[in-house]
């Protein structure tokens, strides 16, 4: 999952301090793996270097968590491109997809469209696997079926999420 894009997305609703970014990340996306401060600062310095964020102010006192970051126009474009680009279907994608859906809702983008784009990507791969399965031997069939069942599970999740977008939007926006 892309921590950089996630932190950028969180900055879209307004500038935040380092400690505030970590807190927001943990609250929305860090259930089983909260961020370390170290990850926040290494990520933010990379984003700074790439011009995707800028320092908007520094609180009195020492320590990088006192810096306040704001997203730049280039940063907003970067988030938009990331959200619009379907993920390559692979196992354990849910956390990335979940993050994208929540960020799309938080930033007022079309989450249903994002889910549709991902479904197309999944089905494209499933069609390829189905063709390979049908022309292959038993081993091919079993290998392809395994992948197909996993992709199908992802698709079911996409479908259920699409059906619950309104509820999720209400929860995310508080």
């Amino acid at each position: 999952m892309s921590i950089g894009h996630t932190l950028l997305g969180l900055l879209e609703s307004g500038p935040r301090h380092g400690y505030d970014l970590k807190r927001a990340f943990d609250e929305h996306f860090g259930q089983d793996r909260p961020l370390h401060y170290g990850q926040v600062y290494s990520t933010m310095s990379r984003l700074l270097k790439n011009g995707l964020v800028e320092v908007d102010g520094v609180e009195a006192g020492a320590g990088p968590e006192r810096k306040r970051y704001a997203i730049t126009d280039a940063g907003v474009t970067d988030v938009a491109q990331w959200l619009a680009r379907p993920e390559k279907p692979e196992p354990y994608l849910q956390s990335t997809l979940y993050t994208k859906v929540v960020l799309a809702l938080m930033t007022g983008r079309d989450a249903a469209e994002l889910l549709d784009g991902q479904r197309t990507e999944h089905l494209r791969l499933m069609r390829g696997l189905t063709e390979r399965k049908r022309s292959g031997d038993l081993a091919d069939q079993l290998i392809c079926d395994h992948a197909l069942f996993h992709l199908e599970a992802d698709l079911r999740w996409l479908e259920l999420t699409a059906a619950r977008l309104d509820k999720l939007a209400a929860a995310v926006r508080g």
């Binding site: 549709d116 197309t120 089905l123 069609r127 189905t130 199908e152 698709l155 079911r156």
Partner: peptide
């Protein structure tokens, strides 16, 4: 979805 994967394309 596994049935739809036999199609050439999908409409939702």
């Amino acid at each position: 979805p596994r049935v739809a994967a036999y199609a050439d394309r999908e409409v939702v």
